[in-house]
């Protein structure tokens, strides 16, 4: 298996979220995802990117084209150095929010991806990894 091609994009403003969406769309299409899967993955990326900005105080996303045998896909790793998440279980509950939103960002995004992982330490930051395979 070849080493994944990784690129990094900043998430420091809502314009950056728009750019991340466009780039994820382009790469999801290049990985051969169908239109529904592209839409699901771009939507998930948009939700997580907004969390990185609103709760993490900004951060980055790493984009990796991934391949496992004949399967192609796209993996995104969002990182911030914000306050972190005190309770990941609670943060993944539908309707739970600390920011006045709908509380669907994390829990909803998880349903839109094939892989979903959160690592977070209070005071140190949060890393959310999502992937969608063809």
């Amino acid at each position: 298996m070849n080493a994944p091609v990784t690129d990094t994009m900043p998430i420091q403003s809502s314009d950056d979220i728009v750019r991340v969406r466009q780039e994820v769309r382009r790469r999801a299409a290049a990985a051969g995802l169908g239109i529904v899967d592209q839409t699901k993955f771009v939507t998930a990326a948009s939700e997580i990117a907004r969390n990185t900005l609103d709760y993490g105080g900004g951060g980055i996303v790493r984009l990796e084209a991934v391949q496992d045998g004949a399967r192609k896909g796209l993996r995104l790793i969002f990182e911030d150095h914000g306050p972190g998440i005190a309770s990941i279980d609670l943060a993944l509950t539908d309707g739970y929010t600390t920011g006045g939103g709908l509380g669907l960002g994390l829990s909803g995004s998880r349903r839109l991806c094939n892989e979903f992982a959160i690592e977070s330490k209070p005071g140190e930051g949060t890393r959310v990894t999502i992937a969608r395979w063809k």
Binding site: V36, K40, T43, E47, D94, L104, S107, G108, R111, L112
Partner: peptide
Amino acid sequence: AVAITLVELG
């Protein structure tokens, strides 16, 4: 595709 995604998002 947007409708499908919205419902899955909740």
